[in-house]
Design a protein around this nucleic acid. Structure first.
Lengths: 356, 356
DNA sequence: CGCAGGGGTTGACACGTTTTAATGACTTGG
DNA sequence: CCAAGTCATTAAAACGTGTCAACCCCTGCG
């Protein structure tokens, strides 16, 4: 009974993994169509038949061939998620939000990271397009190339993630980085800083450009010119790059305060400053961006700008799947969150200092 | 010329994204077989023909249908990577190694995270199996269920990642966690600790169990019984869980030293201890595990146990792809790395203390 | 001039699933 | 007891690509 090879096997079972719907059908004594029904509309199959088919599936170790389903259906039931950097907790938090919602709504997520490279972005998007994903969530490397536009023309739903757009023909979810930059630097100025440095990543990254714009705006509001902002650009957005930036700053006169375009940079900067005997915030105030989990546990608890990270992922995915499930009746939305200043020890001082 | 709808379109072009090899063939005035050749064996096609086809591909915005290819080929050219926790830098570092090698060798990576849940692990593996991935790299949730075994039976190559195996019928890449636990606790004892606590995650996790085993071994070697080890088990392996563990420890007498099963836990513990006014390492020595980037920048630079993370990913992927590309002539290997103790401030003291 | 050989191209089929229209069995009401 | 349904199941036709044997045409050699 339990020997699958027993029943007059007209179709011999090749290596496992090649068991198809037909084999199951034969084993259960039904037609392939019925097996398909068991898999996709179980309620249309008589209970007895269904049980027989399900047993055959178990016994043969059948696994549905997703390629064939997708081919037949014309589209898969997965979405692509393209982020900038796997090593940045900001993005992995976003990814958690995406996965949770997708899973709730019966979609699988294909996660890919561009690492900030146009080339990798393009290659990964090609793979996603070939997989006929239902839609794509993307944090683009920059405004230009606009790979996303190509996808949208091909009928793939696209939602921009952590990237606002003025265009009304697509969804986007973002946090106001200009406001965030203004918050951060405004706070530093309030604390008495007059000579502010900004450590920033590649200027093609919108996040960097916008946060810088906000920083300049804060300076202007305080009656300072843009020369008041010393800029240190590094080629990446991780702690190592932050260390490099700090070393460069140590070569000259130190500023009053440093605004880092993200927390990873800030952690790197902090480390080098402390090693060099610079007191934070005594000698230099420091603030980062993203408020990742580790900032609170840093050598000096780091001030930062908080974003609704997990929510960002959730909402973007909701928008995307709404568009997928109901392409015609979908109204594109551009969602913009406001960031929140989180003040910790690293930037508390200056004017308050004289007392001690 | 440039109007695709121009040439006596027998096959009308439906919505973009539905452009198939046939449309391209017609547009270029060749047969579908030739287009396929251009895509897969360009050298067999005459240069002039190839150019014509490539132009048609560009003009029509053709994108190969991966499902159809995979269906026809019987297997895809992607591999699955199943990790325990997206939020742990250890795993994202591993993932970087995997992606780099896979990309070098022409494979795509489908990244999935089980989050330590059997259920999610099983669901994700099912998706991977349905996608007919060439192979799977997996850090299993625990030894039991052995979902990986099922995959292997179905003819999918499987390499265990960060998980050793005694079985000779499969590849595995791991770091000796027992040795790591012994290193960590041995170090704490050398520093004069006598009352050691271990903060650990779910005991089903092999990493936790092995590191604990190593810890006990170190105690035994020092002539101490296993009661010398106070254990605090928390349900997750992140900073929040670490905070919870520290709060529990604060309710009773504090130990001399704390060994955390990973750095995220250690960062959480550190934070709560410092907030409670406990001096680290003055009152309590602390050591973590994994040596993630943030440990060095922590409030008190954290001692840890370093693993060759990126290499782990690279080597595992090499093994997997060797097996995929040459299934018959492949010799299974069980690779085991040795961890390395990294001593920083958080565990330096005790016996040296009396001097100051 | 005829023929062998080979490079270039073609056409048809197979991959495994889903779907649709049609078939068969079985129930119900007249 | 038959007609008209209802419900469960089936057979066959797609989806888009890759492969393979067959075919055509041109060149070079006898």
């Amino acid at each position: 009974m339990s020997t699958p090879s027993g029943g007059g096997a007209k179709v011999p079972l090749p290596r496992a993994g090649t068991v198809g719907i037909k084999h199951v059908a034969q084993h259960a004594g039904v037609s392939p169509g019925t097996v398909s029904n068991v898999l996709n509309r179980p309620e249309r199959v008589a209970p007895a038949t269904r049980a027989r088919v399900e047993r055959a599936i178990r016994e043969l170790g059948f696994v549905r061939n997703g390629s064939a389903s997708t081919l037949r259906a014309g589209q898969s039931s997965s979405i692509g998620l393209m982020i900038l950097d796997l090593g940045n907790p900001f993005f992995t938090d976003v990814a958690r939000g995406v996965e949770d919602v997708a899973s709730e709504r019966g979609y699988a997520v294909i996660l890919a990271s561009s690492g900030g490279s146009h080339d990798k972005e393009r290659r990964n998007l090609t793979v996603l397009a070939e997989q006929r994903v239902r839609g794509v969530l993307i944090t683009p490397v920059d405004q230009e190339g606009d790979q996303a536009e190509l996808l949208r023309r091909r009928g793939v739903a696209v939602v921009l993630l952590d990237h606002p757009t003025p265009r009304a023909n697509q969804c986007s979810v973002a946090v106001d980085d200009v406001a965030g930059g203004e918050l951060a630097v405004g706070h530093l100025l309030e604390q008495g800083a007059r000579d502010v440095a900004m450590v920033t990543g590649p200027s093609v990254l919108r996040q960097c450009a916008d946060r810088r714009k906000g920083a300049l705006r804060a300076l202007r509001a305080a009656g300072l010119g843009r020369d008041a902002l010393r800029e240190v650009a590094v080629p990446a957005m991780n702690a190592r790059a932050g260390q490099e930036a700090a070393q460069r700053l140590l070569e000259g006169d130190l500023p009053d305060a440093i605004f880092c375009a993200n927390d990873l940079l800030a952690l790197g900067v902090l480390r080098v400053l402390l090693q060099a005997g610079v007191k934070v915030p005594g000698d230099v105030a420091l603030i980062g961006y993203d408020d990742i989990e580790f900032t609170a546990a840093a050598a000096v608890p780091l001030s930062s700008v908080r974003q609704p990270t997990y929510q960002l992922g959730r909402i973007a995915t909701d928008l995307l799947l709404d568009e997928c499930d109901n392409p015609s009746g979908h109204a594109h939305q551009q969602v913009m969150f406001q960031p929140e200043l989180v003040v910790r020890e690293s930037s508390r001082q200056l004017i308050a200092q004289p007392e001690g």
